[in-house]
Structures are given as C-alpha cells and as structure tokens.
C-alpha cells in the first residue's frame, strides 16, 4: 500500500499495525492509517469488511464487547489511546460518535443535548448550559425546527431529526473528532441530503470519519477515502483519486460494482 502522495500534514489520529479480534476471529488485520484534522475521511467497503469495527476501536467502543481485543497502536494527538494512562471517559468525550440508527435517549430534546455537558461538568450554570445546547442544535441545523419544543421527547422527532439530534448531542461535548457509523443508512433520501449538508458545514471544525456503504455519499462528502476489504485496508488516498484512478485491482472492482 502506498501513501506517498497523501498529504496529511497534521494528522489528528493515527493508527499503526492495528489488529482487532473478536474471540478467536480476527476482524481487522494490520491496519495503518492517518486521519487528517480538517478533513472528512470516508471508510468504504462491502458489508462485513471490518470498517465499522475499526471505527469503533478509534474511541474504544470495542471495550464494551467482552470478547473484543485490540492490538497495535492508535494515537490521538500523538497520545496512545490504549495506554493505561489514557482515560476512556475523556477519550470518548474528545472522540464523539454517531450511530447507524438514531438513538436519542427517552428524554426531552434539551436533556438529550445537555446530557454530555452535564456528566462532564462543562457548564458552570443553567445559562451556560442553555448556550451550549443552543449552539450544538444550531450547528446540527436543528435549532429552528425544535427551538419551541425543547421539552418534548427526543424520540418524538422524525428519523432525520433524531439523527441530527444525535449529532448535536455529540457536538455539545465539544469533541475534536466525530466518528459516524453509517449515519444515513436508516434515513430517507431527503433526510440523508440534510445530514450530508451538515457534514459539509462541520468540516474544518472537527475531524470527521464517516463509515458508509454508499459510494456516492463517500464521493460527495469526503476528501479522503479508505477502502477496506476482508479486514484489511486495501487502499487509502484522496477521494478523487480513489474514485477516478484506483491503484488496486480490488478497489477498482468494488468501485465499478463487480462485488459488494
């Protein structure tokens, strides 16, 4: 694999020789990759290729699976996130995550967004919290739609709104990286378009990694694309290069729809 022509001057996260095992089964084999600070990075590949698994090891969500084991080195700003000194609670606050299916808590819209700030103690008082909630909802493009009904339950929103609420919830903790695990797979095309628009707007404020099985989406929203297959990273490069001029035969086959 060649990374010569990749220009990631300032990597936010970098992985080196990462293997992930579920019990006996190896889900990820020797993956090394850099994630740029101001970029949207897309992970693509056929289902079961390990892209989501790898994403979940970037904020140690694999810790919640008893049989999962991660080896190799993953750094955030040069710090090993699997080092004993790394605090997983802080790590996840700095590396936020948005899931495949919208998962708002059965609380009010306000409480959903305020949840992270409250547990991390980011707001000194109610006024601060109001500011944080409003800013997060504004950034997630939801403020205008919900500002009059902040006390309604988050689960009462539409699917697309719920997913933007979950993005707002992640933003409210002021993370440095946002991981998105197929965030549009449960949404209709209009809601998907809104989320993609949102990703455009968030670019530059956060390092964003998005897993998607939708190649057009990857082409639309990302600047860097990594193609995973059978647990290995086959090719990583500028999105335009991957889609117009893939170096690997397997990437080409996938892009052109031979399998997947």
């Amino acid at each position: 694999m060649t990374q010569d022509d990749l220009i990631i001057a300032d990597p936010k996260m970098r992985a080196e020789g990462v293997d992930v095992f579920y019990g006996e089964k190896q889900a990820i084999k020797d993956v090394s990759i850099d994630v740029g600070t101001d970029l949207v990075t897309a992970f693509i590949g056929p289902s079961g290729c390990g892209k989501s698994t790898f994403l979940r090891s970037l904020n140690r969500m694999n810790d919640t699976v008893a049989s999962a084991r991660v080896t190799g080195r993953i750094e955030l700003d040069g710090e090993d996130i699997y080092a004993p000194s790394m605090d997983v609670v802080q790590l996840r606050a700095r590396v936020g995550m948005v899931f495949q299916k919208p998962n708002p808590f059965p609380k009010s819209i306000y409480d959903n967004v305020a949840y992270g700030s409250r547990i991390h103690g980011l707001a000194a008082n109610k006024a601060d919290l109001d500011v944080i909630v409003e800013r997060a909802l504004t950034r997630a493009g939801l403020w205008d739609e919900v500002k009059d009904r902040l006390n309604e339950s988050g689960t009462a929103l539409s699917g697309g709104q719920q997913q933007r609420l979950c993005i707002a919830r992640a933003i409210a903790v002021d993370p440095e990286v946002i991981l998105m695990d197929e965030p549009c797979s449960a949404l209709d095309p209009i809601a998907t378009a809104k989320i993609e628009e949102l990703i455009h707007e968030l670019r530059g404020k956060y390092a964003i990694v998005i897993v998607t099985h939708n190649m057009q989406q990857a082409a639309r929203v990302s600047q860097r694309t990594a193609f995973f297959h059978l647990g290995t990273l086959v090719e990583y490069g500028k999105t335009t290069d991957i889609f117009t001029n893939p170096k690997q035969e397997r990437t080409k086959d996938y892009i052109t729809g031979r399998y997947g």
Binding site: R94, L122, R135, T138, R139, D174
Partner: peptide
C-alpha cells in the same frame, strides 16, 4: 455562527 468558546481543557 455564534462566538466560539475556548476548547475544553481536559488536562
């Protein structure tokens, strides 16, 4: 966009 606050000081 409203004003940016300083990034959280985790350390």
């Amino acid at each position: 966009m409203n004003s940016e606050t300083a990034p959280t000081d985790w350390k």
